[in-house]
Design a protein around this nucleic acid. Structure first.
Lengths: 220, 220
DNA sequence: CGCTAATCTAGAACAAGTTTCAGACTTGAT
DNA sequence: ATCAAGTCTGAAACTTGTTCTAGATTAGCG
């Protein structure tokens, strides 16, 4: 198992491609490029679904997606970037799916817990994929911050959706952040076999109680 | 930056050494072996203090600690094992230090928050070391579960100490678990530059409020 | 259509984690 | 003190992430 040979890596690149999907900032991709990008993400998710983080090998991703290794690296400057992008992609699906059937609970805490448990059940269907994405997310270093942040924003949006809030207070945002922390860390302990599914459920329900604390007598 | 070349790794080894320090389970180490182990952990912490996770290179650790590469791997079957063991080591110090000056807060929540903030300030003094240890901890896969669990137990002990509890209820244990989740994840976001120190403080204080929920009218 | 810059490809090369191997050294028990 | 089993060493080999290079292709433009 080779190691993280970055040290002096992932700097000075001519004109990266990545970083679109949600931020068409740089040059808009041509159709073929968009197609390549999609093939890559698909191959990544597929390999991840098989064997998790370790099974996503850059050479294999390149081959599966019919792209040269160098090109793969032009689109995603590292394996971590690739997997985080894969997560962004999956999260979008998820958010779309969740939107359709909003949770029924009466209190916000219940709705958030139910939403997260739904997401959790979805992840359980592809535990290897979950492994790859979550491990990449928590292992990411500063060079991936923008992408990780994007994932975080998307997650926040999902939770706020479930809470039914438009203009959260700073207090409520803190609670949401703590919920996200718990969500990620609980997933990790489940993925590494140190906590059962039931345990994760309890932890999620426990942390969601914080929501009740942040707007008990408030209106909305 | 090489990758995780484990796949078929870290299985069938004759008679590992590792796994003592707290669990003198297997064969007791001779004096020279104990010394080697200590040299290795010291070298690991030193290299980590310099440049974080990436700076802990197995060849360098071996050289610094005057041990052959093969021997290093006999003591610690992977870089992750090594760094998690380094964390166990540091945590013991920390627990000892914290014991001496127990936090003063009145409510349990305050004491826990203060304790964690103390630990956080200690980590801030060696951010690179913190980076190496925390990244290893969250990246660890199933093969490191026992060691990661040990770290988790030690952390739990520290928190329960601060709460002043001997016999926590299941509810309280849930709260403690959630606090640990938040602690780890908040550290990650700080280490990767996505959250400020102030933010981490707020998150810790926020999650600690859960404690008040678990034994409000209970006695003590 | 013909040109130039940017992009893509195939493949070699490099870095660091991990494994393997033959031989020297220790340890523990006889 | 002596021998077998278990350790340690030094060095090479292997794996997979990452970088680099030279030559094809493609895209956009006049």
């Amino acid at each position: 198992m080779p190691a993280e040979a970055k040290v002096s890596a992932k700097v000075n690149k001519p004109a990266k491609v990545d970083a679109r999907a949600t931020a068409p900032g740089s040059p808009p991709l041509t159709e073929r490029q968009e197609a390549r990008r999609r093939r890559i993400l698909h191959a990544s998710a597929q390999l991840a679904s098989r064997g998790g983080f370790d099974a996503v090998q850059m050479r294999e991703v390149a081959e599966s997606s019919q792209v040269a290794l160098g090109t793969l690296y032009r689109y995603f400057p590292s394996k971590i970037h690739l997997l985080v992008a894969t997560m962004q992609d999956q999260l979008e699906h998820m958010h779309g799916t969740l939107r359709k059937k909003p949770p029924q609970g009466e209190r916000a805490a219940e709705r958030v817990a139910e939403t997260l448990m739904r997401a959790f059940r979805a992840l359980q269907r592809e535990p290897h994929l979950a492994d790859a994405m979550v491990r990449a997310l928590t292992f990411a270093d500063r060079s991936v911050s923008p992408e990780v942040d994007q994932v975080s924003r998307q997650t926040t949006a999902i939770i706020l959706d479930a809470m039914g809030l438009e203009h959260p207070t700073p207090e409520q945002l803190s609670a949401v952040r703590v919920i996200e922390h718990t969500w990620h860390s609980a997933l990790i302990t489940w993925l590494s076999g140190r906590a059962s599914i039931a345990q994760v459920k309890i932890d999620i329900e426990t942390v969601c109680r914080l929501i009740d604390l942040t707007a008990p007598d408030a209106h909305e």
